[in-house]
Nucleic acid binder design. Structure first.
Lengths: 246, 246
DNA sequence: TGTATCCATACGTATAGACGTTTCCTCTCC
DNA sequence: GGAGAGGAAACGTCTATACGTATGGATACA
């Protein structure tokens, strides 16, 4: 990490500046609830305009690294606020953030005619032609954590094979690198469910055990739905975490 | 809603402009996935600088009303993305958003010595002197929805009485209007739990029934903890909803 | 007919400067 | 000693201007 803004760098200056300040916060150089240099001072220090400084601070404020107090200054947020857990993450990223080794076992992958409920979530007419469905057993440190069923709405003529999935590592990687589809927003619901005999067997628990059922509809850059995911988490192993903002 | 920016208005111009555009989107005057006037055009139309226009659009983008495409324009987001459900809400607000009439029955209100787990969440040393605890039965359309236990960290010498709670209507209103404490962020966890006989009786369900356990730590303006809330929701009546963003 | 280039338009980044508002400290006067 | 006025410092809002970069269509040319 550099300690000055480089005008020749390809990335925006406000972005470079935000990285510099974030680094100084993470290393502890700037202390919690202590003021960071004022906007005018940083204008001098980093040889950028105050607008650029403010743009960098806006970014850091949204990311939860700093908070501002009108007439007083800009302060470092407590460390714990820095983990933005509820950011849009895949199961793998989610597990890694918790320090658990993610794993998976693909149970089925292929084209199926989506049931009515799924059509509604994906904003499709019912009945609808077959779309891609992937069923997976999700593992955490080797033991079953959840049972995931995902439906994907791909552009016409696109197909995903098991081989390709292996190459790219994850569906999200594949979608981003091959089709330039990036998840930007999602609506998620959580409720309690009870395991059917079939689900129980796969998750290695007793039938009727309580589960945490998560359903997520994911939107891409242009705010169109491209994914519907349903995950049944083992009630005894999984805790959902979120960060709420006003 | 006015249709022009008033320089004499006390509120910032970018805020006024955002309101105007939001209104035009909500009424359907600006259509989904259609471009809104370009930044330069709005500069002319509303007689403000482009910076101000962009500031208004930044706000609307964060609120999910519009999305931008570099080199093409700014577009109206689909209507459904406009309900930002996961915003920080109280139980009452949450219920109202779902069209359910909220209600409550205060079971207990008073000072207690917080247990160790609660001290940790509130960043207090254990043992700690008594703090305010409120235990409530939460109702939706008259029937039990959840059992809530809240701990509040109030400034020295502050007390809350049942009478005051009645006057202000809700704890949040009281905190905001009397003590100027406003919730700005929160960390929440959700997991599955099973009802103890006592909890079951209060919630009018069978002992051992699955529950959705929510634990929330809430932060005020200066990013300090002021509240820890634990709610046991009836698994058969409550669905948690959230909106995730990248 | 097809392709390559150019250009208008839109958003993205950046600067310099001005004035408003809040906070807090200091100094003065009673 | 206390209350009030004044001022410095910090964030908040706003303008005018310039140049960068992505998109998509029009135009020119092979």
């Amino acid at each position: 990490m550099t300690d000055s803004v480089d005008p020749k760098d390809i990335s925006p200056r406000y972005y470079q500046l935000a990285n510099i300040i974030r680094e100084r916060i993470i290393t502890g150089e700037l202390e919690q609830h202590k003021p960071i240099p004022s906007e005018r001072q940083m204008e001098e220090i980093y040889s950028v305009s105050r607008t650029t400084v403010r743009q960098a601070l806006d970014l850091l404020e949204r990311q939860g690294y700093v908070y501002r107090e009108h007439g007083r200054g800009t302060f470092v947020s407590p460390q714990k606020l820095q983990k933005r857990i509820s950011d849009l993450t895949s199961f793998s990223e989610d597990m890694k953030q918790r320090g658990i080794e993610p794993g998976q076992k693909i149970l089925e992958i292929g084209l199926v005619e989506p049931p009515e409920g799924v059509c509604r979530k994906l904003e499709l007419t019912f009945p609808h032609e077959p779309i891609l469905r992937i069923t997976r057993l999700r593992l955490g440190d080797g033991t079953p954590m959840g049972l995931q069923t995902s439906y994907y709405l791909l552009p016409d003529g696109c197909e995903i094979t098991t081989a390709e999935l292996e190459v790219y590592g994850s569906v999200y990687n594949l979608l981003e690198e091959k089709l330039h589809i990036v998840p930007t927003e999602a609506d998620e619901t959580l409720e309690v469910a009870l395991a059917t005999p079939n689900e129980a067997a796969l998750l290695q628990i007793k039938p009727g055990s309580p589960l945490l059922l998560s359903e997520r509809t994911t939107y891409s850059q242009n705010r169109r739905v491209f994914e519907f995911v349903k995950i049944l988490y083992r009630g005894d192993r999984y805790i959902y975490t979120a960060k709420l903002t006003r």
